[in-house]
């Protein structure tokens, strides 16, 4: 067919070879990417095997960590990880979902519009765009919280949060010390500062995903509720939040995964004390902080133990993340079906 004219011609042999090679390359890289998770798990598991043989499941229940005597246990770290993450999730979720509602239901745009209206400027060519601009700006500001590196939060917590909350904490301990939550004084790093910073760090995740879920609630549902005379909050509480519940749940679980694995802020703020306590002011430790503090100067023989601890952290976060992803996937599938 190549005799037809001078420009059009079938793909040359080299083009075909390149085409096939490129497609295989893409496929190979995609395989590599998906294998990455498995590779990481295998590598950590492989290095952890000697320690698993030596210490067995008792490692999970042990409460001492002493390289000198060779006694290792990570129960305090598991407790600290779950406890701090759970508390941070409580704070982060309430603020994060509140911010998501605030951003998705047009509160700010409306407020700015009202202000402009008071000056009669609501249809001004430049200022008239202000309500929408303000909302986008606020959304970007919240997302900016996620852009700040965690080590900077750690620094900030160390020099701003701890001095700020210490008097209040110690006053609480003095007056309400009989409540286990306030059972100790805050001398420096401890659970509460770590939890506060952790909550700030997971808030943008919760807000962003929850806002997506809220925004994608079909407008017809909202209209239906308003049309029946429901107030704004009756609509939000009775119609919009339940419809977006799955998306919000997914967001919360993903944020929980983040909190469990967060390292730097905790390594700097939680106090690295090997103890189990419900007190908010007592120092504690988490798995990630344990790894961060011990890996850099680990002796060769202790690496296995640290790998064992890493494997436990991996298992916990992987479990939480998979659950979160599945919930989110189902949520978005359900919403598409509803449209």
């Amino acid at each position: 067919m190549s005799d037809i004219n001078q420009i059009s011609r079938p793909p040359t042999h080299s083009q075909q070879v390149v085409d096939t090679a490129f497609r295989w390359l893409c496929c190979g890289f995609a395989c590599l990417s998906v294998l990455m998770v498995a590779l990481i798990m295998l590598e950590i598991a492989k290095d952890a095997v000697p320690a698993i043989r030596q210490y067995g499941p008792g490692f999970l229940a042990g409460t001492t960590w002493d390289p000198n005597t060779g006694q290792f246990g990570i129960l305090p770290e598991i407790w600290g990880t779950l406890y701090t993450s759970f508390l941070a999730l409580l704070i982060g979720t309430s603020f994060g979902v509140a911010a998501a509602i605030f951003l998705s239901e047009g509160f700010l745009a409306q407020a700015v519009f009202q202000i402009l209206k008071a000056f009669g400027l609501q249809f001004h060519p430049v200022l008239g765009k202000l309500p929408d601009r303000a909302e986008v700006l606020l959304k970007n500001l919240i997302e900016l919280l996620a852009a700040i590196p965690s080590v900077v939060y750690g620094l900030w917590g160390l020099f701003v949060i701890i001095p700020l909350i210490r008097p209040a904490c110690n006053w609480l301990n003095l007056k309400l010390g009989w409540i286990p939550l306030f059972g100790t004084t805050l001398t420096g790093p401890g659970v509460l500062p770590a939890v506060i910073v952790l909550a700030i760090m997971i808030l943008p995740t919760i807000t962003a995903i929850s806002r997506n879920a809220l925004v994608s609630v079909p407008p017809k549902l909202r209209m239906a509720a308003y049309g029946m005379g429901a107030t704004r909050w009756e609509t939000i509480l009775a119609v919009i939040l339940p419809t977006a519940a799955r998306g919000i749940a997914g967001a919360v679980i993903l944020a929980f995964g983040r909190a469990l694995g967060e390292t730097m802020a905790l390594a700097m703020l939680v106090g690295n004390a090997n103890r189990i306590s419900v007190s908010l002011f007592s120092p504690a430790n988490t798995l990630a902080a344990l790894l961060a503090n011990n890996f850099p100067e680990a002796a060769k023989k202790d690496v296995g133990v640290l790998m064992y601890a890493a494997l436990v952290l991996l298992a916990i976060t992987l479990f939480v993340n998979i659950i979160g992803s599945i919930i989110l996937q189902k949520a978005s599938a359900g919403q598409e079906g509803g449209k």
Binding site: S33, V34, M36, V37, L39, I40, E43, I44, K46, D47, L254, G257, R258, L260, G261, E262, T263, A288, L291, A292, F295, L306, M307, A310, L313, L314, T317, L318, N321, I322, G324, S325
Partner: peptide, 19 residues
Amino acid sequence: GAKILTGFPSILAGVFAYG
């Protein structure tokens, strides 16, 4: 896999590279 990796504790990437 990519989604799981996004939520992966960053320290574990360090543990992997260390190993």
